[in-house]
Simulated assay, not measured.
Amino acid sequence: MPAFACPAPRTRNAASTRQAMLEAARRQFARESYENVGLREIAGEVGVDPALVCRYFGSKEALFREVLRSPDDGEFLSGATAETLPEYLAELLTEPRCEVSAEKVGWLLIVMHSAGSAQASQIVRDTLHEDVLAPLEQMLSGEAAELRAGLVLAVMLGTAMVNTMGIESLHKSSDDRLREKLVEVLSAAVR
């Protein structure tokens, strides 16, 4: 009589399970608005019960706040200075294949998809102010820093949106030409 082996119990690792839920939520929120993403879908992608998502994050709102934390722990502009900002952002927006750029562009998509959400818009505004606008204002300092920071954010979000939509005018040009034009626009915004 053949001996049947019992399957090995699944190894439990709270940190990796939490991270898997967070990554699934990022993917879901990058594709859909806040209202269209449910904890069941996130849990299903990871293969866990939706109650476990609530246990780890408390609520969908708390999970969304965690997802919106900048991909590099609140340092969206890490590595940039006022002088290098136009080049830094142009590179970020034209090189989404690079892992860091892809994460940051994905973050911009999450912001765009849920910015108009009745439930999530305040979270999005708070996050944009805290993680992008305030650091930009500090970096740009001087006259009209708040306005200039807002213009930079508008260019970033607009470029990410147009790229996502696949607008031909941007896709027809070479990455170098697009990057060059973005540097010009962003340079004008920071002045």
Rank of each mutant, 00 (worst) to 15 (best):
V152P: 01
R148H: 11
G79I: 08
P9H: 14
M112L: 15
V183R: 08
P9C: 03
M156T: 06
V53Y: 04
A149F: 11
P2H: 05
A154N: 13
V100R: 02
P9D: 13
G150L: 07
E99L: 15
L170P: 00
P86T: 06
A82E: 14
R18S: 14
T81E: 12
A102M: 06
E23F: 02
P135Q: 04
R179Y: 12
M21W: 04
N163K: 06
R179A: 05
L92P: 01
D126C: 09
A43K: 06
L140S: 05
A62M: 08
S78A: 11
L77I: 04
W107T: 00
S169Q: 14
R40Y: 09
N163P: 03
V46A: 11
N163M: 12
S173T: 12
L77N: 05
E32R: 14
L22G: 03
S173I: 10
A20F: 02
V132T: 04
A149H: 02
E184S: 14
A8M: 08
A102N: 05
E45N: 10
E130H: 09
F57C: 00
R148V: 07
L151M: 09
P86R: 01
H129Q: 13
A43S: 06
F76D: 00
A51Q: 11
E35I: 03
D175R: 11
V37G: 05
L133S: 04
V37R: 00
G44Q: 12
K181V: 13
L92I: 03
M1H: 09
L157A: 03
L22I: 07
Q138M: 09
L22P: 07
A43E: 05
